[in-house]
């Protein structure tokens, strides 16, 4: 039952791939390469990037010293802003971010306690927020309107209520508010 019978002539082993299937294999590879190229070009040439390594912090001391001690929006150059956001159960500080239309905003988020999420509706801003780490993305707000940022990681019993808002206002209104 185990050894080949004595009279057996060995027949050549082979993959025995059906020609149709061979073509499907080739085609699948091409399809995947095309898709991968599309996302790579979007990511590295057109600037649709994901967050990377930024900085580390100590969750115990972020509210005492460093930029997260004063969460909020700061203008750093004409049309350029940065905002530091502290996430904690169950709110974001600040709960509202007001910027003028066209503002390029660099958003830094960290957590004071457990993991949270930070996703601004209708934009590509989406970050996991992890205590001990700073998440960062830069985004230009071209449209006037309200864009909620929603906590998308389970963080405890009040998770469903955890959100804030970006208000993008016309430049004139922004000046008037004297921000």
């Amino acid at each position: 039952m185990t050894a080949p019978p004595a009279n057996a002539e060995p027949q050549k082993e082979s993959m025995g791939i059906d020609p149709y299937e061979r073509n499907w294999i080739r085609f699948s590879i091409v399809l995947l390469v095309v898709f991968l190229t599309a996302v790579t070009v979007a990511g590295f040439a057109m600037g649709f990037q994901v967050p990377g390594e930024e900085a580390r912090v100590d969750p115990a001391t972020i509210t005492e010293a460093g930029p997260f001690a004063n969460p909020g929006v700061r203008q750093i150059a004409p049309g350029e802003f940065e905002v530091y956001v502290v996430s904690r159960t169950f709110n974001f500080d600040p709960a509202e971010i007001v910027v003028p239309q066209g503002a390029t905003v660099t958003i830094y988020v960290t957590s004071q306690d457990v993991q949270h999420g930070f996703k601004i509706t209708d934009t590509n801003v989406n970050m996991q927020v992890v205590p001990g780490q700073v998440s960062k993305l830069t985004y230009t707000f071209d449209r006037v309107g309200e864009f909620p940022y929603i906590c998308h990681e389970y963080c405890g019993i009040g998770h469903a209520a955890m959100f804030g808002r970006v208000r993008v206002v016309p430049p004139s209104e922004f000046e008037e508010a004297g921000a």
Binding site: L31, F35, A38, V39, A42, M46, G47, F48, Q49, V50, D122, T123, N124, V125, L137, T138, Y139, T140, D142
Partner: peptide
């Protein structure tokens, strides 16, 4: 179907603005 559905999400990405 792959091209259509995947492509439509890709278009959403492009329409929602760059993030860096």
């Amino acid at each position: 179907t792959i091209i259509l559905l995947w492509g439509s999400v890709y278009v959403i990405l492009l329409s929602r603005g760059v993030t860096s």
